Amino acid sequence: MNIENLRDYCLCKKAVTEELPFGPDTLVFKVMGKVFALTGLDKVPLSVNVKCDPEKAVKLREAYEDNILPGYHMNKKHWNTVILDGRLAPKLILTMIDDSYDLVVRGLTKKQQKEIKDFDE
């Protein structure tokens, strides 16, 4: 997965914005103002931080120890850094992005969740 694929996939989700709040080298994807993914634009190989259920985060790190690490500069209990060097199946990467988005949406208020549901309808 490259940066264009990552960006397109994140932006296709409802109510998502992209920002550069940490400077020009860190692209952040938010849903209703809450971060669900971020990536360093200057990193080689490309990596993305995604939110994850704590138990699942540990299991993923154990299963893919070279490519899924505790979240860099993030709460390591709730975030993973995923190295996108071609060794992980694209479906797994997309599932982790989906899970991150869904976790953030579940943490929003009911009003915000309804706004997302009604987004673009």
Score class of each variant (00 low, 15 high):
Glu115Ser: 11
Ala63Gly: 02
Ile116His: 06
Ser47His: 12
Leu27Lys: 10
Ala57Glu: 01
Thr109Met: 00
Val31Trp: 01
Lys76Thr: 02
Pro45Gln: 11
Ala63Ile: 04
His78Lys: 11
Cys10Asn: 03
Lys13Asn: 04
Leu92Met: 09
Lys30Tyr: 00
Val58Met: 08
Val28Lys: 02
Lys111Trp: 00
Ile116Ala: 09
Val48Glu: 05
Glu4Gln: 15
Thr26Pro: 11
Leu6Lys: 00
Met74Glu: 05
Asn80Cys: 10
Leu94Pro: 00
Thr26Cys: 15
Leu103Lys: 09
Lys30Ala: 00
Met74Leu: 01
Val35Phe: 05
Val82Met: 05
Gly107Asp: 09
Leu103Trp: 01
Leu6Arg: 02
Ile83Gly: 03
Ile83Ala: 04
Asn2Cys: 10
Ile3His: 06
Phe22Asp: 08
Lys30Met: 02
Cys12Ala: 10
Pro90Trp: 02
Val105Asp: 06
Met96Trp: 02
Lys110Glu: 09
Tyr64Pro: 07
Thr109Gly: 05
Asn67Lys: 08
Lys56Tyr: 13
Ile93His: 04
Ala37Glu: 01
Thr17Trp: 04
Cys52Tyr: 00
His78Ala: 08
Val105His: 06
Asp98Ala: 01
Ser100Val: 04
Thr39Met: 07
Tyr72Lys: 09
Asp85Leu: 03
Asp118Leu: 14
Asp53Asn: 14
Tyr9Ala: 01
Leu6Phe: 08
Tyr9Pro: 00
Leu103Pro: 07
Val48Arg: 05
Trp79Pro: 00
Phe36Met: 08
Lys43Cys: 14
Val82Ile: 15
Trp79Met: 06
Ala15Lys: 13
Tyr64Trp: 05
Arg7Ala: 08
Asp25Ala: 13
Asn80Ser: 04
Pro45Trp: 13
Leu69Trp: 06
Leu20Pro: 06
Val48Tyr: 01
Lys76Pro: 06
Leu94Asn: 11
Arg7Val: 05
Ile68Asn: 01
Lys110Val: 11
Ala15Thr: 08
Val58Asn: 06
Lys76Asn: 07
Tyr72Trp: 13
Glu121Pro: 00
Lys77Asp: 00
Leu84Pro: 10
Thr81Trp: 02
Ala15Glu: 01
Val35Asn: 12
Leu38Thr: 02
Met74Arg: 02
Lys13Val: 13
Val104Ser: 02
Asp53Ser: 12
Pro90Glu: 15
Asp120Leu: 14
Val44Asp: 15
Ala15Ile: 02
Leu108Tyr: 07
Leu103Val: 11
Lys91Trp: 01
Glu55Tyr: 08
Asp120Lys: 15
Asp53His: 09
Asp120Ser: 13
Ile93Gln: 01
Ile83Gln: 07
Ile3Glu: 11
Lys51Asp: 03
Glu19Ile: 03
Gln113Ile: 03
Lys34Asn: 11
Gln112Ala: 13
Tyr9Phe: 11
Ser47Tyr: 14
Ile68Asp: 05
Lys51Tyr: 07
Lys56Asn: 12
Glu19Ser: 15
Leu41Gln: 14
Lys51Gly: 08
Leu84Asp: 07
Thr95Asn: 08
Lys91Pro: 00
Met74Thr: 04
Thr39Cys: 13
Ala37Leu: 08
Gln112Gly: 06
Leu41Glu: 12
Phe119Arg: 07
Leu46Asn: 10
Thr26Ser: 12
Leu108His: 02
Val28Ile: 09
Ser47Arg: 12
Asp102Ser: 14
Leu84Phe: 09
Gln113His: 07
Cys12Ser: 14
Asp42Gln: 15
Asn75Ala: 05
Phe119Val: 10
Tyr64Val: 06
Arg7Ile: 04
Lys76Gln: 06
